[in-house]
């Protein structure tokens, strides 16, 4: 029973304190301040604006980056296409001959540069003949024509393993006529990409 008097005392003290307190203490709850609200709103708006601007800037930057990437891809594609076209340029031969003509050496030099600039590139050279020779002998002659181009390229430092050769004799003419114009076009070497030709560097 000793705790009860303490509680009573505490209650009395509290009552006494309350009785001699006089006027109540001022309200401490915040009063709205118009100026600070406006400031805060401004700050908030500024922040949002900044964020939006940043986002726009980022988007713009990204867009530009994407554009740049696309542009460079297109440029690269254009380059690849240009290099492919250079690579596909045919060389031609005299009747029943397989030696490289002097005016075709430059064409082969260009192919050497391309092969040097694109070390993963592998190609196939196919030799072709006109219809005047013997059908079966022309397979051997076409083989000579493909091989002489390969030998030229290899003699300028290109790895022989990067070049395949094949002969189609007179079986795949590109000009169908039966005159010297057509024959001259058909006595040729063609160059095609076997692998490593997806993105070619200009030499």
């Amino acid at each position: 029973m000793r705790r009860l008097p303490l509680l009573v005392l505490a209650g009395l003290a509290a009552a006494a304190l309350a009785a001699c307190g006089g006027s109540p203490p001022p309200q401490t709850a915040p009063q709205p301040n118009a100026d600070s609200i406006a400031a805060a709103e401004r700050a908030e708006a500024d922040r949002r604006a900044r964020e939006e601007a940043d986002a726009r800037a980022r988007e713009e930057a990204e867009r530009i980056a994407r554009q740049r990437a696309a542009d460079s891809l297109a440029a690269m594609g254009r380059t690849t296409e240009a290099v492919r076209t250079m690579l596909a340029t045919m060389i031609h031969f005299d009747f029943d001959k397989s030696n490289i003509r002097p005016d075709d050496a430059g064409v082969l030099d260009q192919k050497i540069s391309i092969l040097q600039a694109n070390p993963n590139l592998r190609i196939r050279i196919s030799g072709h003949c006109d219809e005047r020779g013997s059908d079966e002998y022309n397979l051997a002659l076409g083989n000579r024509r493909a091989t002489s181009a390969k030998q030229y390229v290899v003699s300028h430092g290109i790895d022989a393993g990067r070049i395949e050769t094949v002969s189609y004799g007179e079986e795949r003419p590109i000009a169908q006529g039966h005159d010297e114009t057509a024959w001259a076009q058909n006595r040729r070497d063609e160059f095609e990409i076997l692998s490593g030709g997806d993105a070619l560097r200009h030499p």
Binding site: E136, L139, N143, R144, T147, Q151, S167
Partner: peptide
């Protein structure tokens, strides 16, 4: 038969 390789046929 005939065989054509780089060396010749």
């Amino acid at each position: 038969f005939s065989r054509a390789i780089e060396e010749g046929t």
